[in-house]
Design a protein around this nucleic acid. Structure first.
Lengths: 195, 195
DNA sequence: CTAGGTTTGTGAAGAATTTCACAAGCGCCC
DNA sequence: GGGCGCTTGTGAAATTCTTCACAAACCTAG
């Protein structure tokens, strides 16, 4: 989050930013900003604030954004397709190297200058080319099976859009995005808001 | 999260579930399950566990899922369209009552048995029909402006897919889903994993 | 070079969350 | 009906996270 706003500041020519300024942008507190950043090192100058450009560079390093991570998307439905064409990914160095589906109607459908591939080829493909991250845009019922397969094939990070918890070995990182659950959180807020 | 798995258990005919069973399903601990549920009341029976069906009903009440919340989607790009047709929403009682865009090419494009509407009509539409939740699938630069407008028009809850923090008055609930940020979290995990 | 106005970095305090651990309650079986 | 094996609900302890508050450091101006 800090990186996002620092990039913005950098683009607009700001040279330094105080924890106070960053906090306002990010919707947090100055103390929080300082504690968070201090976890990784001592970047600021007292009396001045943080050097915007230098800090963006350091944060990118810390986040491992120096390299182009290779991503496969599993599931070529609405969400999968939207993700496959989402600019934000490539912009930030995530390269979509393959889209997979199990539905014969979708397999072979053009995608970029390649085509949607058969999900049965997934294991083989991951074994032969480097794949860092698997994005799952598939029904909940299929999620765990696909997770097991990509983990078996060597993938170490998974972004899961299926509305279910998936279980993985400790060395695999998973982030789950559950839109229905977010909406239900809003429903709760609407129902229980203190007016 | 508990609701999701309780529904599954209910569907498969389970009558009771222990905190231990729920914890395993949800990837948490039994103590956590009990503390969480106890916040809303005392639902379980000692020696037996929680009554699955009864608890789903109660959780739905608590989350305010009894009624059909009316949702508008702002932004008819890839992500907005995917969301507009996402079954998970309707299944859980969220009714998409309108899709808006500012791009003339997209305005009027058929969507369900209606059409994508001009974003300039948004304020008027919200004022004349009930809209509970606004889902934002628009560029970061437009996000705050649209947030201000829908809040002004009376919307109390926002699901934000724009990759930016948005600021709202205290009585408005916001959930932000930032896919690029999730990917960066995975990048960090891949970079700093302890092997 | 010094004084004054800022802002960081960080221990310590405070708050919130999670885990522990166990009494109390429940159903089942004999 | 009583004993036994489970499981909840919950205070208390432990841990984690956030906020406070201030010394140390830095810049600018004169």
């Amino acid at each position: 989050m800090y990186l996002r706003y620092l990039e913005e500041l950098d683009g607009s020519g700001q040279h330094t930013a105080s924890s106070d300024a960053l906090a306002t942008l990010c919707g947090t507190t100055p103390a929080q900003v300082r504690k968070d950043l201090s976890f990784f090192g001592s970047f600021g100058k007292r009396g001045l604030g943080y050097p915007v450009h230098e800090l963006t560079v350091r944060l990118r390093e810390i986040l491992g954004l120096g390299q182009a991570w290779q991503v496969v998307i599993v599931g070529a439905g609405k969400i999968g397709s939207a993700l496959a064409e989402y600019r934000g990914f490539r912009q930030r160095g995530f390269q979509v190297v393959g889209v997979y589906d199990k539905n014969p109607d979708k397999i072979g459908r053009p995608w970029g200058d390649a085509a949607v591939r058969d999900i049965t080829e997934l294991d083989h493909d991951i074994a032969t080319q480097r794949v860092d991250i698997a994005v799952l845009a598939i029904p909940a019922d299929d999620a765990q099976e696909i997770v097991d397969r990509v983990v078996q094939a060597g993938v170490r990070a998974i972004l899961n859009f299926a509305p279910t918890q998936v279980h993985v070995p400790a060395h695999v990182a998973v982030k789950t995005v559950n839109m229905a659950m977010e909406l239900e959180g809003l429903s709760f807020a609407l129902t229980n808001r203190a007016d």
